[in-house]
């Protein structure tokens, strides 16, 4: 059980690191939102799942699961709202936008 938890957390950390690298490398707001989506929907959720598995199948497992579900349901709404605001206020993806 502990090894499964460690595996999940390390996998989540991999996605968190990749998401951060993407945040630095990608050229514009719209692409960076993809990096954030990678961080949210895979990195954070996998780390939370690992912690839940580490807790074992007790009440705490369910509690962490509720937080996981919240992250899963709410973060797409947040990134959609941000990107829509960016789109509506006239921002467009440009290749030559400076890093």
């Amino acid at each position: 059980m502990t090894w499964l938890a460690i595996f999940l957390i390390v996998l989540g950390l991999f996605f968190l690191v990749v998401g951060s690298i993407g945040m630095l490398r990608l050229p514009d707001v719209f692409s960076r939102a993809h990096a954030l989506s990678l961080t949210d929907s895979l990195g954070a959720v996998l780390v939370l799942a690992g912690l839940a598995v580490y807790e074992g199948f007790t009440m705490n497992f369910l509690r962490i699961f509720v937080v996981l579900l919240l992250v899963y349901l709410l973060n797409p709404v947040i990134s959609h709202a941000t990107i829509r605001a960016a789109y509506r206020s006239g921002l467009r993806p440009t290749e030559e936008e400076k890093k």
Binding site: S20, M23, V29, R32, A44, N75, S79, T82
Partner: peptide, 14 residues
């Protein structure tokens, strides 16, 4: 842009 900052803040909060 402002939206980059908002995205960064969202990442920090997650």
């Amino acid at each position: 842009s402002v939206f980059d900052r908002v995205l960064g803040l969202n990442g920090i909060s997650t």
